[in-house]
Design a protein around this nucleic acid. Sequence first.
DNA 1: GCCCTCTATGTAAACGATTACATATTATGG
DNA 2: CCATAATATGTAATCGTTTACATAGAGGGC
Lengths: 348, 348
Amino acid sequence: MVTIKDVAREARVSVATVSRVLNDSGPVSEDTRRLIHEVAGRMRYVPHSGARSLITSKTETIGVLLPDLYGEFFSEVIRGMDETAQRKGYHLLISRSYADKDGIETAMRAMRGRVDGVVVMSPDLDAESFLNVPSTIPVVLLCSVSRGNEVDSLTIQNCRGAREMVSDLVGRGHTRIAIIKGSPRNYDAAERLRGYRIALREAGIAPDADLEREGGFTEMGGYAATLELLALEERPTAIFATNDSMAIGALSALRESEVRVPDEMSVAGFDDIPLARFMDPPLSSVHVPIRELGARAVEILLHGVTHKNDHPRRRERVSTELVIRRSTGGVPVERPPPKTLNRELVPA
Amino acid sequence: MVTIKDVAREARVSVATVSRVLNDSGPVSEDTRRLIHEVAGRMRYVPHSGARSLITSKTETIGVLLPDLYGEFFSEVIRGMDETAQRKGYHLLISRSYADKDGIETAMRAMRGRVDGVVVMSPDLDAESFLNVPSTIPVVLLCSVSRGNEVDSLTIQNCRGAREMVSDLVGRGHTRIAIIKGSPRNYDAAERLRGYRIALREAGIAPDADLEREGGFTEMGGYAATLELLALEERPTAIFATNDSMAIGALSALRESEVRVPDEMSVAGFDDIPLARFMDPPLSSVHVPIRELGARAVEILLHGVTHKNDHPRRRERVSTELVIRRSTGGVPVERPPPKTLNRELVPA
DNA sequence: GCCCTCTATGTAAACGATTACATATTATGG
DNA sequence: CCATAATATGTAATCGTTTACATAGAGGGC
């Protein structure tokens, strides 16, 4: 592998000069500049990023810690992250970690010296506990509960979104509204459940434990939960799945059971993944700007990076938007999602 | 940030001893070993991976070059890669690159010194041309045409899979079978189209240009292409979409046009993404072991890494399997996918 | 008591870049 | 024509590790 020394030797100059030419730093005569470019090109010299980052202490890489890589939601988040990261000249080092504290800590250790900052997406409720290792590099907590004021955080307006969706169902005459929850240890899931309960209370509808099922955020889970709901003495007339994967599972179960949607049963999801509008019937959902979520997380992180992690901490929450399609009795109109990302600061 | 020197000073030993303890290399007395562990733990010392990899010339990271991060297919591939990579102690550096030669070259340069090998997934037909930069690090070409013998490659049995699916449609009595193609520059797309044409020829069905539409591998593209097909004088009775995203778009268009599936129109996809079986009706598809594909790519790459890229090159192709569900008139039976990955060596 | 072999530790040279500082050359101004 | 400044280049330290080699002491066999 050809190094800067090889280039210097071949061009009969010092490594310093080569470095100066390649980085456009310091004065170099036009002749040597041309010469070195020619030699470097001919020798196919490629700088060793690892070596460079050791001395500059910038890796131009940001780490991403994910709980699991599953489904279109994550695919879109990563896409958003990669887009902005790349635009700002950064790379993405992705690591799926076990959601527990140990897993996160191990992963964080492994990232030392490889990244300039980390986006941690660990919906697990006690995610922040890994912060007893006060990290010197910037961290953005994504979709996680954040208690302390050590790191920046970015979350989804889960509670409000869920509440709006359930209220909308109420407005359409439903009184027996079931929910398919995610894991109780999952922050997003917990917040969406909270929104559901608030909406019911506001509508004066008594909660019913039979109507709260867990689906683990997977299609299969939503499918199974729906079959359970259908087996109830007194069926619900609407199902609010707390993410789209489960809603898709629900639709599948309803079709197999020959329950017509939305005539006999309304179904709503959460996230509004790109697929949602292609479902049968098109799925009502709480729109989350998924890509922008990833993009914004990277932006916040890079702000921390440029300020050497010595900046006032932010706590942001991105807005959701109700998208009513046919699965809850809406009319088939597609409005394009808003161009700008609506977000708000969350008081500590 | 605390370095190995700090630990050495605090423990009153040399850096060499600290290094030996932390890596379990060379003899160290039990006393010093305990001492150093204690000190390192107390000071929260974390080795700087960048510095280490500079001297060991192992980064324990593998690069992944993707054409685009879109949909469940990529999400699953990455998942498969991450699983095996992590199991073998490697990280994933992911980069979405413009599919052209320049883009790949730039991305490859940027990875110098950051990774021990690269999985390049560039379905673009002239992907391998970037190899005029004879890379010294191992490369695995994933889902790309590979002409030379410079690198390992792993592909999908596209042609056979497509051929089997179309033959199956023929066997069910269809003679007007449309195809929704991907980009002609896409290797997978081209091969699937080839399989379709072979199957038609075998069945003695004359090709019909009207029945070949392009959908760009997206839901929207499949949706639009289907509307075009429905507008034809003489409609097809079956649509073979060359990936599931387009098939989902097709189902959506058919439903809106009130064409019943499979009674009036059969629909088949390719890839068999996890969602396929939850469609309405459940989507017949050519099953591709997506996660295993990613996993196997990493395995092949790591084989190259351990052999310092001085190993006989492999050219593998993973088998597909026909999965007939209701969208082409199948009966609703779900068989679990095979546990082991079927693959074969491809002669050069 | 001597030599050899272990074991435990330290010293210093890498790895491949960047960059502060020193030095040599040329240009400018009086 | 000399002092000074500007330009061009080289030297060597540095980043945080690993590791080959050197050294020192302990133990064992003769």
